[in-house]
Amino acid sequence: MKILVCISHVPDTTSKINFTDDNTQFDTNGVQFVINPNDEFGLTRAMWFKEKQNASVDVVTVGGAEVEPTLRKALAIGADQAIRVDTPAVDGYAVAKELADVVKNGGYDLVIAGRESIDYNGGMVPGMVAAMTGASFVNTCIALEIEGSSATVTREIDGGKETVTASLPLVIGGQKGLVEESDLRIPNMRGIMMARKKPLDVKASVNASSETNSVSFEKPEPKGAVTLVDADNLDKLVELLHNEAKVI
């Protein structure tokens, strides 16, 4: 089985979000970049298929040279080889077009992506890749088993979960649950050394055009001060929620 894990290179969750160039560009100054958390769960699950079912695992990111340390980290965790599609990630559609080309040429059986990236939060790339390549698609996956050419997937739904079956090729949008938090892998010294020798191919872009583009950013209005209510005076809280906030 050939697996491709799509990795989005995103600011660490503690990053301060600021913009430059008249609020048109994300300010990367002082920002640490990491593997998108949803993709990290998928990558760890892919390692299980590699170890238990002999799968090969490639990782791919669409982006400039600045994403390479993130791909190296994925190699250190255990992926066999990395692909960087050499073009800036403009929107979900253009990224999906680039990834669909990688998927078609690589003949992958299983594409593991994340439910959403924590920077753009589009939640659109995996489904678009599936639609563009004619693969089955399951989103918000919290468990994945493969037997031959068929997959059994558990998907989170509002208020519960649902088990579905689908045949390969399959694209999933994964999240926490695919593996437990405690099973996430941190690259060790040996992995880091090995990662240096693993292939990281830079692939030319197919020059996919985008369908949307961000023209400017804004920050939310600063929040007003909190109204404190004494613990002995909870009637006041009930009154405020009813008459002032009008939420009860």
Binding site: P11, I17, N121, F217, E218, K219, P220
Partner: peptide, 9 residues
Amino acid sequence: VFTNKAFSN
């Protein structure tokens, strides 16, 4: 965008 830390036009 950025999990509610900003907006994009």
